[in-house]
Nucleic acid binder design. Sequence first.
DNA 1: CATCATGCCATAACGGCGTTATCACTGGAG
DNA 2: CTCCAGTGATAACGCCGTTATGGCATGATG
Lengths: 224, 224
Amino acid sequence: MRDRLVEAAARILAEHGPSSLSARRLAAEAGTSTMSVYTHFGSMDDVVQEVLTASTLNLHRLLERVPRGDDPVAHVALLGRVYRSAALRRPHIFAAASAKGLLSQGDAGASTPPRGFTWQTLVQAVQDCLDAGRYRRPQDSELGAYLHWASVHGFVTLELSGMAPTSGVSGLPFETMLEGLAIGAGDDPARAVASVAASRDTFADWNRPTDSDQEPAPAQGPGG
Amino acid sequence: MRDRLVEAAARILAEHGPSSLSARRLAAEAGTSTMSVYTHFGSMDDVVQEVLTASTLNLHRLLERVPRGDDPVAHVALLGRVYRSAALRRPHIFAAASAKGLLSQGDAGASTPPRGFTWQTLVQAVQDCLDAGRYRRPQDSELGAYLHWASVHGFVTLELSGMAPTSGVSGLPFETMLEGLAIGAGDDPARAVASVAASRDTFADWNRPTDSDQEPAPAQGPGG
DNA sequence: CATCATGCCATAACGGCGTTATCACTGGAG
DNA sequence: CTCCAGTGATAACGCCGTTATGGCATGATG
């Protein structure tokens, strides 16, 4: 029964958002009564917590599996692409996890500042850029990682709020942002553009076979 | 009565967050009954809409009054500082307005993509950077403005979620981000750093007298 | 076999929510 | 004065999360 509840909760959450996830509806869709929710969970909040934790764990696993080629800047860009792609694929989940501050942890009991394994992955990726001489600023790879994360997160957040830039804008906003991040970190502009372009191809190639990593998802367009 | 309701709603929203703003509590704190809420507003949602719209309007007015010196890059950075400062000053309001996608409009009936007057201000500021030869990319000032906005917004969002970078990090994260934005847009690194530093002084000077622009606010630290 | 303890959940309830129907009251217009 | 529009107090409806109660299986124990 517990599994059916989690399943139903995940589906409701993903398809209709958190406001539609009520104990009565959840029980009904799982074919049971509200009482069984409380036999298996402490509260309704624990249910969404469990679903969101599982979802972000999926994202973390996905991000860790991102192929690390020999171009560290492309790797950082690729991580951003995967983050955005996951968010666009399941907007409600992303929004809820973001609102609850769950996106950085991926690990129960983590301290409030970013401490999930993905965070380590990103920090390492940025550190690789520094080591390779591509990045120059900031010297602190944790700070650099945080700035990348903040920018991509903000971009996606605004995108999901329907505030994406007006159509007719020249260039692809997300590509431009990725390039700007690298250049802003000290990379050579031409190399940054090349690395971002390379990461786009890697993403396209790699994204297809890993489709099954996420549960069934509606169509989406990571093109942007 | 209407005013007392709006007042009380604004206070509850700012101090205790949206989840604490119930019709019954609002009526009680305004010294009336729930019915009066519905004589003056269509629904509870309209109440928070009104409060948030007023708050973002305040922010927009504030942003428009930002002194435009002769350094366009410093001006862009200053806009970011003011945005962040307002968000830190009233976290609940910012989070709620952000969740409702109200932050860009500042104007009823605006189309979904950013169309508020502040948006025009930011676009113009970025355009000034392009015209002055400080910025080089992207050529489209709307896109450039969007990228700045997304980064600052993401930074503040994560900051309010308690995911600010670990203490002990070297350098000031927000300063570093502002510098990175300018450099990523093509500015000369040294000039970017100088402009951001200049904007910090301008902000400190200008922030004191305009304290009264916002309603009574708890202590906060825009230092970053 | 009978007995009992345990875990699961159906029913129904409690208080609180947004919202609405009803109606008493007030104050200005004719 | 009457009449009317607007206001809001009372109480209700159907939701919500949560919980008390109790029935029903199941499996261990004698």
